[in-house]
Design a protein around this nucleic acid. Structure first.
Lengths: 120, 120, 120, 120
DNA sequence: GTGGTCTAGACCACC
DNA sequence: GTGGTCTAGACCACG
């Protein structure tokens, strides 16, 4: 499993990582009980501060996506309840709606939106 | 035209205002050549610093959404050229795509996305 | 003789007018001893503040391009010496050079520059 | 890399700085991924307010010339796409054209223009 | 009156 | 340490 950091992005590094791990878990690229790289390894690999990686793991543990086992490492947690999935979906729907109004010229047809979705 | 600032929000004041004005222009609640409140008036009304309002106007002017006329005030700009519209659309499509992967939930159907769009 | 003000421009109105009159005189569209519109007429025509027009005439009079005859109006002055022409040319050469470095990507060929010049 | 502020100039400090950095990047004196002085350092060096430096960096980032990495500093961005280069070129050609008519002196020969270009 | 620029100094998020 | 945001208050150019 590989992660990528875009240092030119305005999105904080820790948020980029959180997002990528969340996505990997959701898509099954990271499976329950699979072990993640250690804080030190991942920080060296991405050339970022170890504190930043630690923060990412902590945050995802609070969300219930990861859990740490003392002395063993950080692991993917068991799948969550449907309730959480529902919450995530609502959040997405809300944010997309926000984007649509934020952009002044919404000359985007439904078809184009779907094309973006299906490409991914 | 009224604006609201939520000081409890984590979103910077100036970004809240930028968003509201952008949206108002996009929705036609603010029309081309319409004058916006003066920097001083709006800052008094929202109880924020005049510099913060000035920053908002400056940023929106750089985006081509507003333009200022020295000594007269700040006005809604004429709609942009198709070229710029194209650029905005590309930006939107790209950001929506990013959202779709960032958010874990693939449990959103195309129909739901469109519903969000049509509501607005 | 007609003048045009672009209110969306960041260039101050009075500077736009000064430039247009200077150009008109230089190109011979306004000839020596020709009378310009009165301050009040021109301000009404352009829908700008009379003070602004007055400032323009004052500035051009200081430059020796116009002169006012009390009770009669403002007129185009007699042609200037070559020394002033030389000074203007130097100014232009300097400003074009500045533009060329200011723009980050000077992917403009000499031929293109000349094309701009000849079109006008 | 050194910057100079002329406080006697009518050009705002932040615009002087923006121009110098833009030029340095264009000329290759500042190379992609090179780090610029921190806001605090540069403000101390030039004896100006940190906010003014921050404004410069913010503006250049919006232009895509710089990008900031949280907690690390501000860096020269990678060269832009051809599309953007094209836009810049168009802008330049347009502005040069404007200069040519604004300035009264048509007494500049094509050869002189080119001389300015090649000197730089 | 309008916006534009600058300073001084504060607090915050991120690394 | 880094940049980002906000406030307070000053002075200037423009209309």
């Amino acid at each position: 499993m590989e992660f990528r950091i875009e240092s030119s992005s305005r999105v904080p590094i820790y948020r980029q990582l959180v997002g990528q791990i969340r996505e990997a878990v959701a898509r099954g690229r990271l499976k329950p009980d699979e072990r993640l790289p250690s804080v030190r390894d991942l920080s060296r690999q991405l050339v970022i501060n170890p504190n930043t990686v630690a923060r990412v793991y902590t945050e995802l543990e609070r969300e219930g996506i990861l859990n740490t086992r003392q002395g063993l490492g950080v692991f993917v947690a068991q799948p969550k309840s449907d309730l959480t999935k529902r919450a995530r979906k609502d959040r997405l729907v809300c944010r997309v709606g926000g984007l649509l109004t934020e952009t002044v010229a919404p000359a985007v047809t439904p078809g184009e939106l779907l094309a973006v979705n299906s490409e991914r």
